[in-house]
């Protein structure tokens, strides 16, 4: 079965429609507004990723979410990883779906099911181990000193470990 959507683009229905997938996503933080999507396509025209790569289409991502195409969306090479997080779609959406937040919920699901790209774990690990994302290099302190800035402080990594461990 082929689903015909805008501009002659097609979605191959490779998998069974699974409406339970919505509920899976509903329980992830801020991951429930896809249920408001009525597929108007207002999110598409100004989406930068769509304008530079036709295979990225926020409306199709919302449609696949509603239909429960989990195998396609929840993958380390899923198109969701090409979202720029620019939030233009959230500005345009008349239904307050906030597509970026749904895409982030899908990404969270990728992490929970071990299907996220390695780069995600690398960054989250860096924060948990050092307290920061962009690590200082050998020139950082010298530069700070030259600019008259105080030296870097230590980061309370132990506190971070305690607060991220569940509720």
């Amino acid at each position: 079965m082929v689903l015909h959507v805008d501009n002659g683009m097609e979605v191959q229905e490779k998998h069974k429609i699974d409406f339970d997938f919505r509920e899976k996503l509903d329980v992830i933080a801020d991951g429930f507004r896809h249920n408001y999507c009525y597929q108007c396509g207002a999110c598409v025209a100004d989406c930068p990723s769509h304008n530079y790569s036709e295979s990225f289409n926020p409306r199709l991502i919302m449609l696949k979410t509603l239909l429960g195409f989990e195998d396609e969306l929840v993958q380390p090479d899923s198109e969701i990883w090409n979202c720029t997080n620019c939030y233009t779609c959230s500005e345009r959406c008349p239904q307050d779906v906030r597509p970026v937040d749904i895409i982030i919920a899908l990404k969270n699901l990728c992490v929970k099911t071990g299907k996220a790209p390695d780069s995600i774990q690398k960054i989250s690990q860096a924060v948990m181990e050092s307290g920061i994302t962009t690590k200082a290099t050998s020139v950082t302190e010298r530069r700070r000193q030259e600019l008259g800035l105080n030296p870097m402080k230590t980061y309370p990594v132990e506190d971070l470990k305690k607060i991220v461990e569940g509720e």
Partner: peptide
């Protein structure tokens, strides 16, 4: 923490 990668890791 970082709004792209860390948020993608776990929003809570």
């Amino acid at each position: 923490p970082d709004p792209i990668y860390f948020q993608a890791h776990d929003k809570m």
